[in-house]
Simulated assay, not measured.
Amino acid sequence: MNFASVRIITDDVDRLVKFYEKVMGVSAERPVPVFAEFIVPSCTLAIGDSQMVSLFGAGSGVAAENHTVIIEFRVHNVDAEYERLKPFVDEWVKEPTTMPWGNSAVLFREPDGNLVNLFEPVTEEAIKRFNGRGRRIVEVSEVCIL
């Protein structure tokens, strides 16, 4: 089994697409107006309109009601990303700090209230833990964060 994507359900696809284009530094693919995908080497972030929920079955989702998932992006420099995103982020949950497990991290809420974590392994143990995961981090100037 291969992990394919995470999908955010929203009542305002255009607003979230614009926000994540700024955060990720890539343009979304929009096959239809009610759906968008950010396809990067390590994963796909999808955004779907709440109208689509009925296609998955009754009770399968409510827009902007998530309180348990954190969307995470590994970056090269948490402090630089924090400075870059200050003009676009309205609610910062945690300014850059080193977490007990060895990652430097900054957390914020995106327009629908979902938590987003930008992190970089900074301790020797954290760097070792992430070295074998096969992900290549690409600079925003190259195309995207992940």
Rank of each mutant, 00 (worst) to 15 (best):
M1D: 00
S5G: 01
V6N: 13
R7K: 04
T10A: 13
D14S: 09
L16R: 05
L16D: 11
G25I: 02
V26G: 00
E29D: 02
R30E: 02
V32M: 12
V34D: 15
I39M: 06
P41I: 09
T44H: 11
T44L: 02
L45A: 11
L45F: 12
A46T: 09
G48Q: 11
V53Y: 05
G57A: 07
G59N: 08
G61W: 03
V62R: 04
A64T: 00
N66K: 00
H67N: 03
V69R: 03
I71N: 08
F73P: 07
D79W: 01
R84T: 03
K86G: 00
K86I: 13
K86F: 03
P87N: 10
V89D: 10
D90R: 15
D90T: 11
V93A: 13
E95F: 09
P96N: 11
T97L: 12
T97H: 15
M99S: 10
P100A: 14
A105N: 05
F108Q: 14
R109T: 11
E110T: 01
N117P: 07
N117C: 06
F119R: 00
E125Y: 08
I127V: 14
F130A: 12
G132D: 08
R133H: 14
R135E: 06
R136H: 04
I137G: 09
V140Y: 07
E142F: 13
E142K: 10
V143C: 10
I145Y: 00
